[in-house]
Computed example of a mutant assay.
Amino acid sequence: MRNKIFFAVAATLMSTSLYAHDVTFEAMDNNGDKKISKDEFHGNAIGRSTYSDYDLNGDGSLTKEEFGETGYDEGLFDDWDANDDDELNHYEYHGGTFHYHDDNEDGYWQEDEWENAASDGVWDI
């Protein structure tokens, strides 16, 4: 009986954990307008993106060497480094990521752009 209760609780916790990390297009489209703005992206990306995976020393920013592990062209680092401090904070990284995947450059992600970002491994789930 104990084992059944344990497994039931474990299954419930696992499903709750997966739901908490819901990174669907619909979940990120906070206002339901069928597109994701930069603000919606930033609000949803913190804690869900792969940024922390690349921050190898845990200092809260990416060096050029750490950025080299992201899979993005290393030449983008300087473009994304808005304050020219030779580090990318999470705002700069997420801003660069957003613009990189905004294929039609309209300032929003449509569902196909979101899917491209997801297939490129943007989400840390």
Rank of each mutant, 00 (worst) to 15 (best):
residue 43 G to K: 03
residue 125 I to W: 08
residue 92 E to T: 04
residue 30 N to D: 02
residue 117 A to S: 08
residue 72 Y to R: 06
residue 44 N to V: 01
residue 28 M to D: 00
residue 63 T to K: 00
residue 33 D to G: 03
residue 56 L to R: 12
residue 123 W to Q: 03
residue 119 S to F: 10
residue 97 T to L: 02
residue 80 W to G: 03
residue 59 D to N: 15
residue 65 E to F: 11
residue 22 D to P: 01
residue 76 L to T: 09
residue 32 G to S: 02
residue 104 N to Q: 13
residue 32 G to R: 01
residue 93 Y to A: 01
residue 73 D to K: 14
residue 14 M to S: 13
residue 104 N to W: 07
residue 124 D to K: 08
residue 100 Y to D: 11
residue 107 G to N: 04
residue 62 L to F: 06
residue 72 Y to W: 04
residue 15 S to F: 11
residue 33 D to P: 09
residue 48 R to H: 03
residue 36 I to Y: 05
residue 6 F to M: 15
residue 94 H to L: 11
residue 1 M to S: 15
residue 32 G to M: 01
residue 8 A to L: 10
residue 50 T to P: 00
residue 91 Y to M: 10
residue 118 A to P: 02
residue 87 E to S: 12
residue 16 T to I: 14
residue 117 A to W: 07
residue 92 E to R: 05
residue 52 S to H: 06
residue 39 D to H: 07
residue 70 T to R: 06
residue 14 M to G: 11
residue 108 Y to L: 12
residue 46 I to M: 02
residue 124 D to A: 09
residue 120 D to T: 08
residue 88 L to A: 04
residue 99 H to N: 14
residue 52 S to Y: 12
residue 5 I to C: 06
residue 36 I to A: 05
residue 119 S to T: 10
residue 22 D to T: 02
residue 33 D to T: 10
residue 27 A to N: 05
residue 94 H to D: 09
residue 39 D to C: 01
residue 122 V to N: 02
residue 71 G to D: 01
residue 120 D to M: 12
residue 43 G to T: 04
residue 99 H to S: 15
residue 123 W to F: 09
residue 5 I to Q: 14
residue 107 G to W: 06
residue 62 L to Q: 04
residue 109 W to T: 02
residue 30 N to M: 02
residue 85 D to K: 04
residue 33 D to Y: 04
residue 44 N to L: 01
residue 15 S to L: 13
residue 40 E to F: 07
residue 51 Y to F: 15
residue 62 L to Y: 02
residue 9 V to S: 07
residue 73 D to G: 08
residue 48 R to M: 01
residue 123 W to G: 05
residue 42 H to R: 11
